[in-house]
Amino acid sequence: MISAGIDLGAKTTKVVILADNKIVSQCLELTGIDQAQTAEKALSNALEKANLSRDAVNFIVATGVGRNAVSFANKEISDVAADARGIIYLLPDARTVIDIGAEEGRAIKCFADGRVQDFAINEKCAAGAGTFVETMARALEVDVEEFGKMSLRSTNTIAMNAQCTVFAESEVVSLVHAKTAKEDISKAIHDAIASRIISMVRRVGVEEKIAVIGGVAKNPGFIDSLKRGLEINEILIPDEPEFTGALGAALTKA
């Protein structure tokens, strides 16, 4: 049985191919403007990697914000259901999942069988999402990867007051002009993002163990802020956190 999961996100599209519930191939592409074309391209690239033909795929499940654009999918499921399913496959001990995508943050509490118990999505504000991190890194003129690591070297705690991405950017510029160390600004930004995510996690209730998925899970500065904010020592992160949703979709066969 070969199944494919396509997670058409706001920024990137992820595909995971499973053969008898084992991952055989995965592929990530920038979503761009034409979502349908990207879905097609990502799927064919993933199939090529696994040396499989399109006909060999028995079932295709789409998820993500652009899931409606995947016309060839046999089934569509929500991001929340896909995330829960995917994380339990990768990390069976996880009960609370924090998924930080490019434009949305989600907090999901799940059962041991991969079903969703409670969930909350921040549908509006970008301040707790991946694009915010990128915008702030740009304002500080550092690479996104370096931006995350920088936060860990901070020696001073300063507070960021702005709630909104646009105002936060001007606050960062003011801090730069006040000769504040970039490391400290980086930490303040990560703390601000984490506090927004934490308030959402508390809505659904914190239950250990906690896992973080989505591209932002690779940012050590954010993970450190999250640990301090939630007052926990351990946060689980899968090896390739951005593929969790696509994996969960692929696991959701008819």
């Binding site: 079903r115 118990q117 409670d118 999505i121 549908e123 509006k124 504000c125 909104c164 959402m200 659904v204």
Partner: peptide, 13 residues
């Protein structure tokens, strides 16, 4: 399942 639909912004939750 308890589904929380909505958002948090500068003015509240």
């Amino acid at each position: 399942m308890r589904a929380h639909y909505g958002y948090k912004d500068g003015s509240g939750e």
